[in-house]
Amino acid sequence: MSDQNPDDQQPLEELPLDEDFMDPFAEEEDQVQKLTAERDELRDRFMRALADAENARKRADKERRNAEQYGGSRLARDLLPVYDHLHRAIDAVPEDQRETNAALLEGVELTLRELGNVFAKHGITVLRPEIGEKFDPQLHEAMFEAPLPGTRAGDVIQLMEPGFMIHDRLLRPAKVGVSSTPAS
């Protein structure tokens, strides 16, 4: 037996142990955790970049479609007075002189018809609200308001100038007179 008393020996739990000896793979685990975190961060950045690229593609596609549909809006707006002037030219010829100016009227009407065809080809439609139609502030501009017996408040009572739409956008509102509450 040994000289030492068994009570004098230190228990195993209390012996100081080298940490590297305890976990020889601790350094590798730390490296794996760092690499996993870096991978996750790169995956996140990649997914965000992919989403940004997809959003940019969709935005560019929408802008391209808008340019195709509405790119001619300014030119169309500039042509609207030509449409109005051609109508005024036809309306300016008195009934008793229509037969003598038939060739001129026919030429103006053909020009007006061709302009209408060009408008239709590019998605431009004419807004001509009917008398008695309800006033719509999204499509009409009220030029005056007057009480008119036999009408309801807010009804169109006169069309002064037609309006125009390009596809689903308003180019110019129709200028109308609107009925107010009829006077008693």
Rank of each mutant, 00 (worst) to 15 (best):
S2D: 12
D3E: 12
N5V: 10
N5W: 12
Q9P: 00
Q10S: 06
Q10H: 04
P11K: 02
P11V: 00
P11E: 04
L12F: 14
E14T: 14
E14I: 07
E14Y: 10
P16S: 02
D18E: 10
D18R: 06
M22C: 12
A26F: 12
E29S: 13
D30K: 14
Q31S: 14
V32W: 13
L35R: 07
T36N: 10
A37C: 02
R39V: 14
R39N: 15
E41N: 15
L42V: 15
R45C: 06
F46C: 08
M47Q: 14
R48H: 11
R48N: 12
A49W: 03
D52M: 12
E54G: 14
N55H: 15
R57F: 12
K58V: 07
K58L: 13
K58Q: 13
R59Q: 15
D61T: 13
K62I: 14
E63R: 09
R64T: 11
N66S: 12
E68K: 12
E68S: 15
Y70E: 05
G72E: 06
S73I: 10
R74K: 15
L75V: 15
A76D: 15
L80T: 05
L80C: 06
V82D: 08
D84Q: 00
L86D: 00
R88F: 03
I90F: 01
P94Y: 09
D96N: 14
D96V: 13
E99Q: 11
E99D: 12
N101A: 00
L104H: 06
L104W: 07
L105Y: 00
T111N: 00
R113A: 07
L115M: 01
G116F: 02
N117L: 04
V118I: 14
A120H: 14
K121R: 08
H122I: 01
H122M: 08
G123C: 06
G123N: 05
T125V: 09
V126F: 07
V126Y: 05
P129S: 14
G132Y: 01
D136M: 08
Q138S: 03
L139Q: 13
H140S: 09
E141G: 00
A142N: 05
F144M: 06
F144H: 04
F144R: 02
L148W: 01
T151V: 02
T151A: 02
A153V: 01
A153S: 10
A153N: 08
I157C: 01
I157Y: 01
L159P: 01
E161N: 00
P162L: 03
F164D: 03
I166K: 11
D168N: 08
L170P: 03
L171V: 11
P173D: 04
A174W: 05
K175L: 04
V176K: 03
V178E: 02
V178T: 03
S179Q: 10
S180G: 09
T181N: 05
A183E: 11
S184H: 09
